[in-house]
């Protein structure tokens, strides 16, 4: 007798927990040879709202955390991914990758975590500046996280693209909600399972699956999201998002490079605000003192 395979239900990842979608909806994307990949939650606007609340709460402890500690946590994520690499390879194959490509993508993903773990405590001193000004002021600019960011993971690169989008965001002390690839969502939720067992505080990364077109307008008009990061939106989607984003002046960051292929510190800076401070000083270089 032929055994009936149990199709896994992949749940959402919100605030460090794995809830089913509040809407109760699910979809079954087709993988290689038309085989169903699993039961995937189709997130609703309430799931988005809940994850924004979780991200806002997590931000309060993530943003002021020591950069070195953030670095340790990102390194820990890499360790957890390494232990699950076989599962990721298997899922990438189910989603249509060749075995070689799948193994390469997983290895690159783990390396990407290490890469950004390294940048956690280095981008600030590398890119901050002391600015020359024409008055007796010490003038300097430093980077501060934007806040709660919604990331739209690229549609084609299920694991590396998602990590390439999310890691720079959390490296810089932001918390985020990521919308996983609609047609290739498996790795996103398996990643959530790895994150839940790493030291990353719940709510720093929240992962939603579902229909991108349905979620985009709600993201655009949500008043408590500070920025949206995406890399493969259509021109119409971009302009709609830009229009809706004016409600609370949220930043819309559309990267031109494929996040799966970019290994660079600049995506970190994309989700940073620059704070410039003027501090009055007595110039000691010119010699002499007014006192």
């Amino acid at each position: 007798m032929e055994r009936i395979e149990v199709l896994k239900t992949y749940k959402l990842y919100i605030g460090g927990k794995f809830p089913r979608t509040e809407s109760g909806r699910y979809y079954q994307p087709a993988g290689k040879n038309g085989k169903k990949l699993g039961n995937i939650c189709q997130s609703s606007r309430k799931d988005l709202r809940n994850s924004v609340v979780a991200a806002r709460t997590a931000l309060a402890s993530w943003a002021p955390r020591d950069p070195f500690n953030r670095s340790q946590i990102l390194y820990r994520i890499a360790e957890m991914l390494e232990g699950r690499s076989a599962q990721f390879v298997d899922e990438l194959k189910q989603q249509g990758s060749t075995p070689t490509a799948a193994r390469k993508e997983v290895a690159a993903s783990i390396d990407r975590c290490i890469y950004y773990a390294g940048w956690c405590d280095k981008y600030q001193q590398t890119f901050s500046s002391v600015n020359p000004v024409a008055s007796a002021h010490f003038n300097f600019s430093v980077y501060e996280p934007m806040g709660v960011i919604t990331a739209i993971a690229p549609e084609q690169s299920s694991l590396l693209g998602l990590l390439g989008t999310v890691l720079p965001i959390i490296t810089g002390g932001n918390s985020c909600i990521v919308i996983a690839s609609e047609t290739k969502p498996l790795c996103a939720i398996t990643l959530a399972e790895a994150l839940a067992t790493s030291d990353l505080p719940g709510g720093v990364i929240n992962i939603l699956t579902g229909v991108r077109a349905e979620l985009l307008p709600i993201i655009g008009s949500h008043m408590d999201i500070n920025a949206v990061v995406a890399s493969d939106l259509t021109d119409t989607e971009k302009s709609n998002l830009r229009a809706e984003a004016t409600s609370n002046l949220k930043r819309t960051i559309f990267c031109k490079q494929d996040p799966a292929k970019t290994e660079s510190p600049y995506p970190i800076l994309a989700t940073q605000e620059i704070k410039t401070t003027w501090h009055p000083v007595e110039s000691s270089i010119t010699g002499g003192s007014a006192y």
């Binding site: 606007r45 806002r56 408590d224």
Partner: peptide
């Protein structure tokens, strides 16, 4: 308004 709100407002 139909839009989710933020505490800061």
């Amino acid at each position: 308004s139909g839009h989710y709100q933020a505490a800061q407002y």
